[in-house]
Design a protein around this nucleic acid. Structure first.
Lengths: 334, 334
DNA sequence: GTGAAAGCGCTAACAG
DNA sequence: CTGTTAGCGCTTTCAC
């Protein structure tokens, strides 16, 4: 009826349970004969060890808790892929839970995962609540905190150099002969938001160009779409030829608006994004953007976690991964 | 140092561990005084019960294994959302693992999940290997098998009525005055593939129209893109005005090709898809398609699993969910 | 109401 | 090399 246990195997093989355990784990020498008998019994019974029991005594669950805002958000799914693939290499499994941005859930789920004895936690959110970060930092398991927008001080994370990435894109735009460039963001005062803005402003100033910043109400496609009318108005009035969006989602929103209103991209206006979400390369015109290496962010996060777990010490730092400017169709090239 | 156990709580509260257990689970009456003392102790120690130990003795892991081809595939992520949200209602957690289509992995992961004592399994794949299905059916845990293409006989799944959905779209196209309509598919001989094809052919015949079927080499954006030149050639030569793609991905590939080659959609040619992947509504022109309710498919799957678990009996059947024709821009309306 | 004790399935000394 | 035994942290009889 219920699945066979190590006892059943031992009985059938005519040895003690220790011997069975030993052949399963190769933890101690076992005579060839006993080994054979055990293996036979295992096969005959189709025995599968109960990892729960194993975890209990070993005090190692081999579980990593991944708390994600919404697994349907494609870049988050990319991060999870990275976590999972590296996790698999080290025999870690993923316990996945979504919060949908609800801070109570974030907190509850964290507790719950600890209860399930996860050995580490990766929290993938957007605009994480400070309380949650506090809690994350004050619980016992090592963690990584990944937030596209909210780069908290002194948290353990993996990201790119936002100032520099933003500079690179601004420089690129200028090199393509754009002089009047709007920077579209939703300014929330976050460290990352400031960094992107700074990169843009610095380069514009260096080149004696005026920084023109506009604000969207929400970092998503709708946010980009809704501000588009104003942007386009300003563009014709003030001779703007390019818009640098702080997030791909904003750029897609703008692109959608342009399509809906017969504005040709990049002929009439150039649009650049930031992120390189999967959609950016599929959409037409394809989006010129800065690639944030989501998969790698996940993979490196997991590697760091594994290292912490192995060395049994908590680390608090920020690993910087390289970003890359991806030239596509949405920016007019000279 | 290491986290407090029920013993520590008992000691601090001056009661036995049984009493602590009883207040935690409300399983038996406890005197108000003892209850208070226990609760105090729990709070003081920030005690969190070890679910692993609990699962071991209760023989209930509260874990559902979700085996997914690739969590980065957006419609799969939508399904997982549905699974997760319903799972949460019943206190089930998600153990997530990706296979990347590798059949050895599919099999290994399944074993591994059983080892972790998952109570049920949801397998979300594409073109699942028969061996894997066989194995899925012959293991002990209840399962749901979700495959967009491969509708195996006698498996436990949740889907839509493909023949009917395909008929609906074909009828719609005809109503929009299209007479020469290409059906683009990658014919793999699967039940679902046949169903979609049948829906199209039946309606075309009913209307005295010729069925024109073309084959892509792969059900993905590239597959659609690569066959596009031929399609467009045939379209001009044979006066075809619409293409009904058996999958949204094929339609997006075709749309991309049209954009790249200055073919206007829907003015020059109308394109319809099947699926309503998230991208379909974002892309411009937005894609007229058949909505497969991915989230609901996940949610209903989980409900079925919960029911099986509760009633402790395996069910093998196919739940049919309603689909919906989504009118957007890619098909020229009269 | 409450505590002592057995046991979930497994690993890891310990003694042979 | 192998078996016996003592737990891992918890739930659940079974007495009291």
């Amino acid at each position: 009826m219920s699945s066979p246990t190590i006892k059943d195997v031992a009985k059938l093989a005519g040895v003690s349970i220790s011997t069975v355990s030993r052949v399963m784990n190769d933890s101690k020498p076992v005579s060839p004969e006993a080994r054979r008998k055990v293996i036979d019994a295992i096969n005959k019974l189709d025995f599968k060890p109960n990892e729960l029991a194993r975890s209990l005594v070993m005090k190692r669950s081999n579980l990593i808790g991944v708390i994600v805002k919404d697994i349907g958000i494609s870049y988050m799914a990319q991060i999870v892929r990275g976590i999972e693939e590296i996790g698999r290499m080290y025999k870690y499994d993923i316990l996945l839970s979504s919060t949908y941005g609800d801070i109570e859930q974030e907190s509850k789920i964290m507790d719950f995962m600890l209860t399930k004895q996860v050995e580490g936690i990766v929290m993938i959110s957007e605009d994480t609540n400070p309380e949650v970060i506090y809690k994350l930092k004050n619980q016992s398991a090592p963690f990584i905190h990944l937030d596209k927008f909210y780069d908290y001080e002194d948290t353990h994370t993996v990201s790119i150099d936002y100032v520099n990435a933003s500079k690179e894109m601004t420089n690129y735009l200028i090199k393509q002969n754009h002089k009047r460039i709007i920077f579209l963001e939703e300014f929330t005062g976050t460290k990352i938001g400031k960094a992107k803005q700074k990169g843009y402003i610095d380069v514009m100033e260096e080149n004696g160009l005026e920084a023109i910043i506009m604000n969207a109400a929400g970092i998503n496609i709708k946010g980009g779409y809704d501000i588009s009318e104003k942007i386009l108005e300003k563009a014709v009035k003030e001779d703007v030829s390019a818009v640098f969006c702080a997030e791909d989602e904003l750029a897609i929103g703008l692109l959608n608006y342009c399509y809906d209103h017969n504005v040709k991209v990049p002929e009439n206006i150039s649009i650049a994004g930031f992120g390189d979400v999967p959609l950016a390369s599929i959409y037409r015109p394809s989006l010129t953007t800065v690639r944030e290496p989501y998969y790698d962010i996940g993979a490196v996060s997991m590697r760091k976690l594994v290292k912490e777990l192995k060395e049994n010490q908590k680390i608090i730092d920020n690993t910087i991964l390289p970003s890359e400017l991806i030239e596509r169709e949405s920016v007019l090239k000279i």
